[in-house]
Nucleic acid binder design. Structure first.
Length: 278
DNA sequence: CGGCCAACCTGTGCGC
DNA sequence: TGCGCACAGGTTGGCC
């Protein structure tokens, strides 16, 4: 479910509760998500202080005082809720898999019905070489992502542009929704062969990818409440998509008049306008 | 190696 | 109300 903007919104929502806080409890209520939860999960984290909360692609990294780094991924259905001392649930939900409590009185719950998410340990000296992290491409909002890099990444690719942009080695953090949205904004058909994009099209697409993600992060940020006072679910926000999920509806591009269509590529839905995306 | 699909899981919504 | 099916925003192992 969550792509880069949702993960970033979760991270920002957790910041006031977790950064600089010491964990007074860490409980794994399920033996495994996508991978087994470390056997020493509780002992390694209890009493540990979270120095920094960062993000790499769709991964949230909790960097602890002793060098431990907790790598968290939300998979398709991972959800994070944050509660203050007054409203922490008395009964856990069926899929509440991980519970953290801080010395500031906050309770953080990770819930993941499908368990495609993951929580594993790494450490500050080797996290860059961690198998989950090391092959990820440039952050789309960072300087390392630009027209030249994207152009080079698409060069020689016989797959569709849709598949190419979903490849986390090419660029980090894009998922099904934001690839559809970026291609719609750029007026590029998702079935186009990646290698067929002209330099001009790549120059159009590159800033659009950044803008689509930036807009979504902004939309997410506006939903973040003051979680010192309130509590709730982080990272899921009402966001109006221009193409995604709009099969059969009118294209929203000014003056287009086309209709949004759905096709399946590599087993995943692509939404696009048959008229203005070529 | 590139590209594609099935598999990992559970929940939800829809047609009958 | 129940049943069966399609589908869901991610990732990867295995196969051609």
């Amino acid at each position: 479910m969550p792509e880069l903007p949702e993960v970033e919104t979760v991270r920002r929502g957790l910041l006031p509760a977790l950064e600089g806080a010491t964990l007074v409890e860490a409980t794994a209520r399920a033996p495994k998500l996508r991978f087994p939860i470390p056997a020493d999960f509780s002992t390694r984290l209890t009493g540990n202080r979270i120095e920094r909360l960062t993000r790499r692609s769709k991964y949230i990294l909790m960097e602890c005082t002793d060098g431990l780094i907790v790598i968290l991924h939300l998979g398709m259905s991972g959800r994070v809720t944050i509660h203050d001392g007054t409203n922490a649930p008395e009964v856990y939900g069926k899929h509440d898999h991980v519970v953290l409590r801080t010395d500031r009185g906050a309770t953080i719950i990770y819930n993941d019905a499908r368990r495609f998410g993951l929580l594993v340990f790494s450490d500050r000296d080797t996290v860059q070489d961690h198998p989950l992290i090391r092959d990820i491409g440039p952050e789309p909002l960072g300087n390392a992502f630009n027209t030249d890099v994207l152009k080079a990444g698409l060069m020689g690719r016989k797959s569709s542009i849709k598949a190419a942009l979903l490849d986390q080695k090419l660029v980090a953090g894009l998922g099904n929704i934001y690839v559809c949205e970026a291609l719609w904004r750029a007026g590029i058909h998702p079935s186009r062969q990646a290698l067929s994009l002209s330099t001009a099209e790549v120059e159009t697409l590159t800033p659009i990818i950044r803008q689509v993600l930036t807009d979504a992060i902004e939309a997410g940020g506006s939903t973040l409440k003051d979680y010192v006072q309130a509590s709730g679910e982080l990272g899921y926000f009402q966001h109006s998509f221009r193409a995604y999920g709009r099969e059969g509806e009118a294209c929203l591009r000014e003056g287009c008049g086309g209709t949004v269509e759905r096709i399946v590529q590599q087993g995943r839905s692509s939404f696009y306008c048959g008229t203005c995306q070529n």
